Structure formats: structure tokens, C-alpha cells
Computed example of a mutant assay.
Amino acid sequence: MKHIRLSIIGFGVVGQGLAELIHTKREILRQDFALDISLVSVANGRHGFIYRAEGLDIPTLLSLAEQRQPLTLHPDVQHWQSPLEGLQATGADILAEATWTNLRDAEPGISHIRTALSHGMHVVTANKGPAALAAHELFVLAQQHGVQLRMESTVMAGTPVVSTVREGMAGVTIHAVRGILNGTTNYILSAMAQGRDYAEVLAEAQAQGYAEVDPTADVEGYDVVAKTVILAALVFGVTLKPDEVYRQGISGITKAQVHQALQKDQRIKLVASLTRTADNTSAPLLARVEPIALPLTDALARVDGVMNAITFEGDSLPSVTISGPGAGRLQTGQGLLADLIAIARTC
């Protein structure tokens, strides 16, 4: 039985989802993977960092979080106001970094990840900021310290995209990637294809929690740009800056445009694409995020609602499409758990 000491920094929706899965799947992890995971520390922005060497009680933590009570009410814990100081003082085998995404400078997540890697901890993350802005630097740092950094949950939550490329498609030379990578915009466009207006559907998406009060990051394509930059690094090994990705959102799409596409047996989707400009692996990468009218013969055209999908085009596998949920508490937590299990199998 392998024992893993886990730290979770960022105990919001995603961090709580991972903790819940670790608790509910404890016996499966032991029986199927010979893995015993002890959650020794947790941190959030409001209550700081708590630690208990013997392991924290997950139901107690989830109850405190649900009631918006301080995590420090958990019995018998040590406390640091700064997550970085707490992590440095206590350590762990694996850090799960699940703080909010910041695409300006990737803080505070990038500092958490750098600290963990530098102290010999493996890292799994759902945070798009560090992945988009500094993936190459962080992978080099992990290699220097003999640890792993995995980031399955940064693209399509728990749907296995990164692991499929790195493991299931190992040996395939990928020429292009196209994807629907944002559930909010896909929900809106799917509803507009049924004859509804943009403003009406956006308001509905906000009421149902699919869209934020300020939906700019989703509807103007910034969220998808971040995921496109991550895919460029993970699939092609190319470092792009967000402003190197052509971006056009969906806020200008009209019901008339959607109807016109339907008349031609097409569906308008917000598509992220990465394509080599020439047929060799050293050619520059063209990156775009834009609404495209796709023919119904395209697998992406039939992806509706909040679902995501991605198509990889390569040599020995001409076209592989993966579809699944791109967000959600347990779905994103599952991506972190899968990465955690992958690390435990090889470390």
C-alpha cells in the first residue's frame, strides 16, 4: 500500500470536489490502486493554511466549507495565515493547486506551484493561469527537482484530453487541433440554433450558473484563449502568449447568422484551433479562437449544450475526437484525481 500525503491549496468548488472524491472513493483507491491518500493540509484565501500530520477529516472540512465557517474550526490543527509559509513548513508528497485563474501574472497559483516543485513535491493543478503563462518554465523546474507536474484539469476538466495525447496517442505526429472548449458559449450557441436570442439565452445561462455575472471571459473568448495556449505547450511544445492567439468572441453573433448557417446545414460554434503553417514539426503554429459555421458532417458541429469536444488530426491517426464535460465540481476534481493516481503509479 502506497501512502500519499496530499495538500490542497484552493478549497473552493474544485478543491472541495477533489476532497469529496478522495473520501467517497477511498476503498476503490485502496483496492484497485493500492493507494492510501491522507489529506494533511488545506488552504483557502479567507482562512489561510491548516495542517494536521495525522490527516484532516474530509467530511468536517466539507461541512465547514458549506456553512462558510473558518477551516480553522477543524479540531487539532496548526495554522498559518500564508499558504506559502504553511506549505514550506509542513510539506507534502503531492500538492493539488486549485486557486482561481489569473491570466495577468498567474498569481498566487504560480508561486504555490514553484514552491512545491522546488521543495521536491509533485504537483497537479486545475489552474489555467500558470499553465497558460509558464508551462515550459514549470515543467523544466519539475524536471530539475525530479518530480512531476500534471495539468489534465486545465482543459476540459476531467475529460481525459492531455493524457490521451501524451499516452494514448504516443507516437502520433499531430498536425492540428480543433476544439469546443467553453461550455457557456456552447450552451448559448446551441440555444440560439433553436431560434432564441443571444441576450435571452445569456440571461438564462447566468441564472443557471453556466455563466458568470460578468460573462466577458467566456463570451469574448478569453477563457478559450488560455486553454489554447495550454494546448500549444502540451501538444506541440510551443510557448505562446495569449495575445498571439487571434480572438473573436460570440457576443456579436446574431439570430439571423445562426439561422443562415442552419439553412446551409451548418452550426456556428466557438472553435479553438492550432495548426502548423507547414507540414513539418518546426513550422510556426497558427492559433485562433473564433466563431465558425461548421458543416454537420464535422463531429464538433453536433456537440451541444455545456458539453466540450476536441479533435486531434495526425498522421497515423487522421482524426480523433474526444467529447465530455468541460467543467463542474466533481468533473474537474476527477481530472486532479486521475493525475494524482498517475503520479502515484510512477513515483
Rank of each mutant, 00 (worst) to 15 (best):
P284T: 13
A157I: 01
A191Y: 14
F312D: 01
Y222I: 15
A327E: 00
Q266W: 12
A92D: 01
A170N: 04
H259N: 12
D32Q: 15
G86V: 10
G12M: 07
V219W: 02
L285T: 01
T216S: 07
A98H: 03
L133F: 13
T185W: 10
S7E: 04
K255Y: 00
N127S: 14
A134Y: 05
H122Q: 07
I94F: 00
A193K: 15
A34R: 09
T185E: 11
G333R: 13
A191L: 01
R178L: 09
V123W: 05
V140L: 10
L340R: 03
L133M: 11
R166Q: 15
D265F: 08
L300R: 06
R329K: 15
Q16D: 03
L296F: 12
L84H: 14
T228Q: 11
H175W: 15
S82R: 01
R5A: 13
A299K: 04
Q266N: 04
D36S: 07
F33I: 15
G326H: 13
E137Q: 13
E27H: 02
L286S: 05
Y187L: 01
V140D: 09
I292R: 12
M192K: 14
S82T: 01
L336W: 00
H74R: 04
N102D: 15
V245M: 11
T281I: 12
R302T: 07
S41H: 05
L64V: 05
L189E: 07
G17L: 10
N186R: 02
P160V: 13
K241P: 02
A98W: 00
V147G: 09
H79E: 14
R166H: 14
L300E: 07
P75Q: 09
G171T: 13
E200K: 06
L141K: 12
T173N: 05
V172G: 05
T24P: 01
G12V: 06
M156R: 12
A65T: 04
D339T: 13
I310A: 10
E66I: 00
L285E: 00
A132I: 04
